[in-house]
Design a protein around this nucleic acid. Sequence first.
DNA 1: ACGCGATGTAAGCACCTGCTTACAAAGACG
DNA 2: CGTCTTTGTAAGCAGGTGCTTACATCGCGT
Lengths: 190, 190
Amino acid sequence: MTAEKPVRRRDAEATRQSLVEAAAELFAERGYDRTTVRAIAARAGVNQALLFRYFGSKTALFGEVVALDGRRQLRETPAESLLEAALRNLLTPVGDAPGDRSLEVFLRSVGGDDEAARTSRRLTEEYAGVLAGLSDAEDAELRSALVLAWLLGIGLTRVVVRQEPLAGADPEHVCRLMLDAARTLLERLP
Amino acid sequence: MTAEKPVRRRDAEATRQSLVEAAAELFAERGYDRTTVRAIAARAGVNQALLFRYFGSKTALFGEVVALDGRRQLRETPAESLLEAALRNLLTPVGDAPGDRSLEVFLRSVGGDDEAARTSRRLTEEYAGVLAGLSDAEDAELRSALVLAWLLGIGLTRVVVRQEPLAGADPEHVCRLMLDAARTLLERLP
DNA sequence: ACGCGATGTAAGCACCTGCTTACAAAGACG
DNA sequence: CGTCTTTGTAAGCAGGTGCTTACATCGCGT
């Protein structure tokens, strides 16, 4: 996919990519509202007018970030492992693994009722849908929604609020406690 | 405490009160960031310069709101009932009961690392402390933090994101599912 | 070699934010 | 009545926001 031409000093695709990457980082760090287009352009090392040339608006760029990067974990993980994988991902410090940070983006961007918030909400619906397959109960969807809510709450406390003792706790320990309790709700959890 | 003088057309205490009430509503509805001082003053029917005369800054007003209103439920509820009470409060539509909306304020205001965010975080530490008394396990504090995280996650999904099926679910049903699972963690839950 | 579209840039616009200031009016008190 | 503090108001400031515009420059196709 690389090396079509040896060197390109002007490269629309590359600057587009830089913008998407910078935006993904910043949205995960600060959420949608608190991320400015100037900050995105600066981190990408790109003039901010280009952001609007390539994406049209800050909201549209946000949509692209969620669409491109946000569904990796969802795509690559089987249902039975999804909860544990997402939980471990949330519990692993960002520097230590390349992990999917889409839930962080979500957590930091809820609250508005604008297009960006709606975009990130759609992502959690997909998680809930997958999780619902892990129970045969009549209220499987409510059960999966409750478990997902727990995951989000843990993420909120751990990554956004950084509140002890959860923030510093051993991921294994947290996993065990949480998954044991969650099995009360979704009987097919491993 | 009322009726010192029959009628006061100019009343600093009353306008202060109006500002606190308007601010409490708006912070719960929109969170700290998305609430403007102009909106607070408008809802209070008061000139916005008075907000600064009486409170000094938007942040200080936020602190007053959390301090005055935010600890009601915490003060008035015994530990064993706190989780269920807070959960029911979160699950009850705002119009239907006068309830304490401090957790909503918290949920909508996390994300920043400014003074306002810190103020609202302190509140959740108090919840966690009370909940930790419900287990004799060595890791009682982690367990209570996990349960609190669940509560916050449910609140996030229900009041902030308003996502089905949790948003429209029967409060009794949700309570039963959640409390059953939470007993795995805190053995003294009723 | 050169024209022209693709790419990058500097400046600025219109609006919103928290907060301040200079001033008007109301009421208490002599 | 006249003064003086308390309460309320209108206007605006400095800085930040998303986004636009007018223009410079690069490099590919001919």
